[in-house]
Design a protein around this nucleic acid. Structure first.
Length: 293
RNA sequence: GCCGAGGUAGCUCAGUUGGCAGAGCACAGCCCUGAAAAGGCUGGUGUCGACAGUUCGAUUCUGUCCCUCGGCA
């Protein structure tokens, strides 16, 4: 019943509206989004792969309660830092939230800096398996033994199309390709192609925020200093004390990674701050290439 | 003032037995569908401190000067 409704809607071009605000870190998304949400009388659905972790507040720049001005923020604090999280889980939860907001007669407003999450909402996500960490550990170990280009050659055997698109050094993506073949017996490039990423559920209006580069970098530096003043070091220590090791994906996030290195006495505090600022600038640049298109 | 070391990319430095100057970082551009704040690719950049001399040719050798750092005064 709903299925056919959706199909009908698609045919007549009446896809559900979806408002999306994207932009690099520190550009001022959160503040702009609160204004927009208040003006529209709606809520904020965050698209941020780091704000989903509970207890990671300062380093992920979750807007403090007083800055939210009563606007509900959803899709944050979803899991513990040692729990697995990924685009698939995000998309599922986000679709539920979007549906709920729509039923209340409001325009869903998605705000975030994680390009992949936004794209998975707007273009769909192929129905694939999540990471198999045992497989990944095994394959990584094998690559150590067999030499650097071993995995790429393996992928060339099972998925030549993907192998040609990936640089031999891009181990993370190469392993994903091997993993999918291992789990499903079919090449990832075929599965991607079959899906096509034309899975349009919404008619999105995407608003990209930007700033002059020098100003953005200045804001990043100020923001890092502010995070430190708010107690980023203490927050990192607390997470480590809870047993959340540096190998966790969540602990590899900006801020935690650099501060954890300092706490492990690998380098000085000044060096940690320098790296954090630098890595955040690099990240903002990568975000810009997602959002430019 | 004297002695010593040095002045090469935005920064830290390597180098040229005299023949179009090169690394890391910074910076810029890009890729991406279950780790994505992850992971990966590509690319500029130069009065080689200044002036003169030797030389077919000087960033490289010689001289003078300027500047920086250390030591002695």
């Amino acid at each position: 019943m709903r299925e056919s409704d959706d199909r009908l809607n698609r045919r007549v071009g009446e896809l559900a509206p979806l408002l999306v605000v994207v932009g690099p870190t520190a550009v001022g998304k959160s503040q702009a989004a609160v204004h927009l949400a208040k003006a529209l009388g709606t809520e904020i659905l965050t698209a941020d792969s780091r704000q989903v972790y509970r207890g990671m507040d300062i380093g992920t720049e979750k807007p403090p309660l007083q800055e939210r001005q009563g606007v509900p923020h959803r899709l944050i604090d979803l899991v513990e830092p040692d729990q697995a999280f990924n685009v698939g889980i995000y998309r599922q939860l986000a679709l539920t939230e979007i549906d709920r907001v729509r039923r209340q007669g409001k325009i869903p407003l998605v705000v975030g800096g994680t390009g992949l999450y936004v794209r998975a909402l707007v273009r769909g996500l192929w129905d694939g398996p999540p990471a198999d960490w045992q497989f990944r550990a095994r394959v990584t170990e094998e690559a150590r033994r067999q030499g650097p280009h071993y995995l790429h050659l393996e992928l060339m055997r099972v998925d030549p199309d993907l192998a040609r698109r990936l640089h031999p050094h891009d181990e993370v993506k190469i392993i994903r390709g091997l993993e999918v073949y291992h789990l499903l017996g079919c090449s990832l490039s075929k599965l991607h192609h079959a899906h096509g990423f034309q899975d349009k559920l919404f008619s999105p209006l995407i608003i990209g925020l930007s700033r002059e580069r020098a100003a953005l970098y200045r804001r990043i530096e100020d923001r890092v200093e502010l995070e430190l003043a708010k107690g980023l070091v203490q927050e990192t220590q607390t997470l480590l004390d809870k047993g959340h090791g540096r190998e966790l994906a969540s602990m590899k996030g900006l801020g935690y990674r650099q501060i954890a290195g300092f706490l492990a006495q690998e380098y000085s505090f000044e060096e940690a701050v320098r790296r954090l600022k630098r890595d955040t600038r690099h990240f903002a640049k990568r975000q810009l290439t997602w959002f430019r298109q």
